[in-house]
Design a protein around this nucleic acid. Structure first.
Lengths: 134, 134
DNA sequence: CGGCACCTTCCAGCCGACAGGAAGATCACA
DNA sequence: TGTGATCTTCCTGTCGGCTGGAAGGTGCCG
């Protein structure tokens, strides 16, 4: 299978496939006599795996480390599990920060809505966001 | 006030101050006879404003547009409010996506924990994350 | 007058995950 | 045989928000 077909099956672009190869995420494939990359069907699975892992927010570097374990035939999933748990912790933190920001914004918007429009005419201050709101 | 003092007061680096100037976030200041940037105290407020707005997740471009309104002495906060509301919507979406990813990861971790360790010995598959889990 | 901290400009690089495009080879089909 | 789609490599650019460093000028203290 050539790179275009692979890309189509996996739902990515040929650019992406070559990029993944360049960072070691997928192995260098065989080449046809004319130099074209020649892939086996299993690479489709690997690319879909990458896509799924990415969907959970893992970076390509993290996915790479998971795949490396898989490639070396590791007899334990402990590294993978540890990675997942660490990532979950990261996500929790991120969600909290966003929720906090969301609350901050909500407070600002509420203040803005309750403001007398004429109070916005001071060219030196915006009443909606001020440094004192920190 | 010279750039170093300003930076200290605002809690940023001199690099950042010059960068903000380069993207038009703060105006070009007066210069001393020797060419040093010479700031008024009000710039401290402006930088703190930027910091606060950034803390809510606004990009510098967005902050720039808010400040622009402020600079032109806009008599209405409606643009600012609209910006804030749009940003809140963005945040909501982002939070949902992260929560979804968090659930996905949780499911994966749960599966991993319940797996018979020996089932991980197949060198061709990682049971924890598979493309079929999409 | 020496030395050091601070200032100036400008250019380069970093992270992540690609996308765009040039220039040339090759393949498939009519 | 032509032509258009696909392939190759390689280099550059994108977004956002800075950071690092080189090379040189200035300010102040003792």
């Amino acid at each position: 299978m050539k790179i275009g077909e692979l890309a189509d099956l996996a739902g990515v672009t040929t650019k992406t496939v070559r990029y993944y190869e360049s960072i070691g995420l997928i192995a260098e494939p065989e080449r046809t006599q004319s130099g074209y990359r020649d892939y086996g069907v299993e690479v489709v699975e690997r690319l879909r795996f990458v896509r799924d892992a990415q969907a959970t927010g893992l970076t390509l570097a993290e996915i790479s480390s998971v795949l490396e374990l898989k490639d070396t035939g590791s007899t334990s999933c402990s590294h993978t599990v540890a990675l997942l748990e660490r990532h979950m912790t990261d996500l929790d933190e991120q969600i909290l920060r966003l929720q906090q920001a969301r609350e901050d914004l909500s407070a600002l918007a509420g203040r803005a809505a309750s403001l007398d429009p004429s109070s916005c005419t001071d060219p030196n201050r915006c009443q909606v966001i001020t440094s004192s709101s920190a």
